[in-house]
Nucleic acid binder design. Sequence first.
DNA 1: ATTGCTGTTAAACATCTGTTTAATAGACTG
DNA 2: CAGTCTATTAAACAGATGTTTAACAGCAAT
Lengths: 214, 214
Amino acid sequence: MNDESTRKKILMTAGPIFAERGFQGATVRDISEAAEVNLASINYYFGDKQKLYVEVIRAARDSQGGSSAFEGLHTQVPPAILLEKFINVLLKKLGIGVEPDWKMQLLVSEFLSPGEACKEIVEEYFRPYFELLLGIIDRLAGGNLSDAERLRMGFSLIGQCLHYRLAGPIIRMFVNAEQFSEEFDNETLAKHIARFTIGGVKSLVEQSKASTVT
Amino acid sequence: MNDESTRKKILMTAGPIFAERGFQGATVRDISEAAEVNLASINYYFGDKQKLYVEVIRAARDSQGGSSAFEGLHTQVPPAILLEKFINVLLKKLGIGVEPDWKMQLLVSEFLSPGEACKEIVEEYFRPYFELLLGIIDRLAGGNLSDAERLRMGFSLIGQCLHYRLAGPIIRMFVNAEQFSEEFDNETLAKHIARFTIGGVKSLVEQSKASTVT
DNA sequence: ATTGCTGTTAAACATCTGTTTAATAGACTG
DNA sequence: CAGTCTATTAAACAGATGTTTAACAGCAAT
């Protein structure tokens, strides 16, 4: 009866813990205690810690339909609006201003120190979002960008969002608390990054057109 | 006679090891073996691992004159040129295309997981560079940016550079090897980020002027 | 009832890692 | 020379952590 119950308990509990403390930082004892199961259960069901980690990622992917939060973004809305919305959602998922989505945290962890599960999580979890973003950028540029240019644009945007997430403590060293909550909140940052990106795309397209004319 | 010799050996050897593996990942045994000193020497001279880490950072700061690599950048050169040069140097320091500067790696480590030494290393090692960058951006914008706007610009630029450093393995999943070495090398990226940033600043200034007129 | 399978548990195990200890050797001092 | 201080060393220690073991309980089938 209790057949798969403890297995599920482990799987559910381990996700946020791995996300918060990383693979190394999360101990099997932490996980087993939080899941209220015996220490040995983890090895019994999953073999070892590494395999549990992979299973957690796989379960995370299956549990919720991919880019659901971005659903409805690929309508006929102007790309500039779309872009800001995309950034807004991404920042939220990353935890700017709100509690971070632990699945996104897992993704970020794999970004920073790619492990065995990296390829899988990137392909299944990151690529759909990224393709969506590339589409928006493409529309923004009126289809005038090369593959590499579009990729660089995409990575530059992701890079900015990630940085505002990762460098929060450092940013706080440069601005006071009041300024931080007013000028570096989700909405303001989304506007900033969107405007920044749109300007960048525009300037690139102009230059590209100019050189084409030449 | 050998008085400070082993102490210096530890200090010199520990830097790159900390930089490469992070504070947690670098073990005192690794360090003592690499420095060819006895395990206990580290505690004898520095008290504990943490204090050694702080000393390493302090030594790194003192050893080489701050923003020397950026020397000569604050001349009367057009800010657009200056900016690209700045990005170029930063990318090199971060290890895009070349071996990374281990001091910069330490800085990045502290960025990603701020420890006790974070405040010190940021103030002494990062802020001078950053102020320089803010100056360039300010000239680029003709002095039309608010403090917060300038800061966001600066962080967006740093974020992009850092991301191209950190996400190297992920980028490789989206482009083939040939494309990677041709389209994501130091020079191309510096050009891309510079153009991106200039476009972003321009668009922000224009919008800012427009709203001022209104 | 016995057997065999499955899940559970506490304990043990093995390894790694930061730190401490106790002994030793060398150099300088009185 | 005796004494004291410093530096060095091998060993031990203590704690954390991933993994394994051996015993046990529940339960179904023979």
